[in-house]
Write a protein that binds this DNA or RNA. Structure first.
Length: 645
RNA sequence: GCGCCUGUAGCUCAGUGGAUAGAGUGUCGGUCUCCGGAACCGAAGGUCGCAGGUUCGAAUCCUGCCAGGCGCGCCA
């Protein structure tokens, strides 16, 4: 549709530019609110009215007849206060849509795009809040790839931070366990740590000297020394592997795991710091509350100072993040080393290393960067981007996007089902923030297990004859689709108040509804082959034949046919729209609505039992086009397509 | 205190300055001698938080107010 509209715009300019000041309008092409008003609407007479001091309706009436020459347009109308509405030549449009094989009409703009998502602290199991991040990030990456971009997906691992120190503390002081004993803990290790982590904060508060012990642990982890560093390394890598497995269940993968420990060992900060000093983006504070610190002035009106290096010489989180962001753009004159971390089928996921390695692919050097990080980190993210600007990397600052989203919280009802202790003041709230520290949260694997179980039950009910293996595989796909749609259907700024009943539903606006629709379409093609011997080759020759005469369709069916074809043609626009606004609910809801339209069509028009050959062929081509579009859309939002369900 | 965000149907949420504000869910009533009922059709349900303003046109933009949430650390 993008190509079609662009072509129209060009033609309109050609026809009207000599007589009307179209250049000063946006020349938008919208859709009409109702099909009986035509297909496309031009609102530009309203804008011209202002310039030309005439009524919009008059202008529309004057221009409309001139537009009948537009190629691909059958009829031009004026409507409302001054809209010019266009009617598309349906036969030509349909024919053309069937025969275009180009994957997408979008064009790439960047050399390389780096998408950072997931980035879970490696000290406990992943929870549903993390899933929102991963689902959004993965969908962004899929859409960018569809657009034709070269995309690199990174997962940032803070394997030297306080959260890991907490869990190391737990193993050393609370349990206590040696490294060997920790290694011998059976699966699920990330669940084990989840429970241990909830005990740490409480323990520290009630045992004198704990804080000192913890800071010693943190210091050793950061410096890579002692048993603490060995424990931290083992724990974080093992939990990271668990996270990757969890994400694999959702068909989410990565190219690179970027570790903070590598950033520290390779002294990325030193280079970044040098750069900051050279460009006078940071200065040393001689007195006041921040005495002894290196700070960066904020550009906003607050004129506050953000500390980059503490008075004890230790760099802050924001400082490290600036260094990492510089590396992503290839602006740091230093690179990581890389080694293979895990294999997923044919794919290798790499991890950064501070020790020299050989034969590794290249990473980084992005021309554009998206950081998928929740909205509570807006402030530090703003500072990171400002850091780039202060270093005179304005272009890179422009191309650094903090892709933010609101949190996933728990409803009081879902808390009850989790059977966790909640403090008195928390109990009265409308929703409760997930807290790994408090153990308040739904673990991603637990939710996936629940969905799998439910899906398996439903599949069994409908397909008792399938093999158990097969049923399990289908259930897994349904669970995946269910979560992915759920995480996408809310706007980024909307807090998701997690409720088991909503999340476990397979009816209405859910992933399984979309999957079911797709399965239905495939089932028709399967039966066409079984009952009529109508094979793939027959479909191909039908597509190529120019013998499609839409006039055989009765009026009502003709308009139902057109509605679904026109809607299915909007996919690329929806992808573009989602990418522009970074709101993938547009694409999700579009896919859902396409399914709704198909299901309505399905109930109204039978294909297998249709006796009229011409009508039957048009219906086959219609659902073929819907299937093709739906498959692309489902792939983009990461919803797998089971063969049956 | 300062900054950002949110307020739309009973509930959960969409809505790109454009035409009669839409979905899902819940409630009520229907649809099958079946291309799969995880479906479809219909009904009821709205002061778009409140008050001004800009505009040919405002749920959408601006101002003020009310209510709620989140940020604002020599934590990450």
């Amino acid at each position: 549709m993008i190509v079609f509209k662009n072509n129209l715009k060009k033609q309109i300019h050609k026809l009207l530019d000599s007589e009307y000041p179209l250049g000063s309008t946006k020349l938008e092409i919208n859709y009409t609110p109702q099909m009986k008003l035509g297909d496309l609407a031009l609102p530009f007479p309203f804008q011209l009215a202002k310039i030309m001091h005439r009524s919009p309706r008059d202008i529309a009436a004057e221009i409309a007849p001139k537009l009948i020459e537009l190629e691909g347009i059958n009829k031009v109308d004026i409507a409302g206060g001054g809209f010019i509405n266009l009617y598309i030549n349906r036969d030509k449009f349909f024919q053309q849509k069937l025969q275009t094989t180009v994957k997408s009409s979008l064009t790439s703009e960047e050399n390389k795009i780096i998408v950072e998502h997931t980035s879970i602290n490696p000290n406990k199991a992943a929870h549903i809040g993390h899933l929102r991040n991963s689902c959004l990030g993965d969908t962004l990456a899929r859409c960018l790839k569809y657009k034709g971009e070269n995309v690199e997906i990174q997962n940032y691992i803070d394997d030297t931070g306080v959260q890991v120190a907490d869990i190391v503390f737990g193993f050393m002081e609370i349990e206590p366990k040696t490294l060997e004993e920790v290694k011998n803990i059976p699966e699920k290790f990330d669940f084990y740590c989840w429970d241990l982590y909830t005990r740490v904060a409480d323990y520290i508060n009630h045992h004198a000297g704990s804080k000192e012990k913890k800071s010693k642990i943190l210091k050793n982890i950061e410096e890579g020394t002692g048993v603490e560093a060995k424990l931290a390394q083992h724990i974080s890598q093992r939990i990271l592997k668990a996270h990757l497995k969890t994400m694999q269940r959702l068909d989410i993968s990565y190219d690179l795991q970027a570790c903070e420990s590598s950033i520290i060992r390779l002294e990325f900060w030193k280079l970044a710091f040098q750069l900051l000093k050279e460009k006078k983006a940071t200065h040393f504070v001689e007195e006041g509350t921040n005495k002894g610190c290196w700070v960066m002035k904020l550009e906003d009106e607050s004129q506050q100072e953000k500390i980059l290096v503490r008075s004890n010489g230790i760099v802050t989180y924001v400082g490290k993040d600036i260094a990492y962001q510089l590396w992503k753009f290839g602006l740091l004159k230093k690179d990581f080393f890389y080694k293979p971390f895990v294999r997923q089928g044919k794919k290798t996921i790499w991890i950064t290393s501070s020790k020299k390695t050989s034969n590794s692919p290249e990473f980084g050097q992005g021309s554009r960067v998206y950081n998928i990080i929740d909205i509570r980190q807006s402030y530090p993210q703003k500072i990171v981007i400002q850091g780039l600007r202060s270093l005179k990397f304005g272009e890179q600052a422009e191309k650094s996007t903090h892709f933010s989203y609101e949190m996933v919280a728990l409803s009081p009802k879902s808390l009850k089902e989790l059977d966790v202790n909640v403090s008195k003041e928390d109990r009265d709230k409308d929703f409760l923030e997930i807290s790994g520290r408090k153990g308040l949260g739904v673990k991603a694997d637990d939710l996936l297990d629940k969905l799998n179980e439910k899906a398996l039950f439903e599949v069994e009910k409908r397909n008792p004859n399938l093999s158990y293996e097969n049923k399990r595989r289908i259930a897994q796909k349904i669970a995946c689709g269910s979560i992915r749609y759920f995480m996408l259907k809310f706007a980024r700024n909307s807090i998701i108040i997690f409720d088991f009943e909503d999340a476990l539903s397979f009816e209405g606006e859910t992933g399984p509804y979309l999957q079911y629709t797709f399965v239905r379409i495939n089932s028709i093609f399967r039966k066409l082959e079984e009952n009529f011997g109508f094979a793939q080759t027959d479909l191909q020759s039908l597509i190529k034949s120019s013998d499609i005469r839409l006039e055989v369709l009765p009026d009502l069916e003709y308009s139902d046919f057109w509605e679904i074809i026109l809607y299915a043609s909007k996919l690329d626009e929806e992808v573009q729209h989602s990418l522009n606004s970074l709101e993938f609910l547009h694409l999700a809801k579009y896919t859902f609505e396409l399914c709704q339209k198909f299901n309505a069509y399905y109930h109204k028009y039978s294909i297998l039992s249709e006796k009229n050959r011409d009508i039957k062929n048009i219906r086959i081509l219609t659902i073929h086009f819907v299937r093709k579009t739906l498959k692309t859309a489902l792939d983009l939002i990461g919803i797998p397509q089971p063969e049956r369900m």
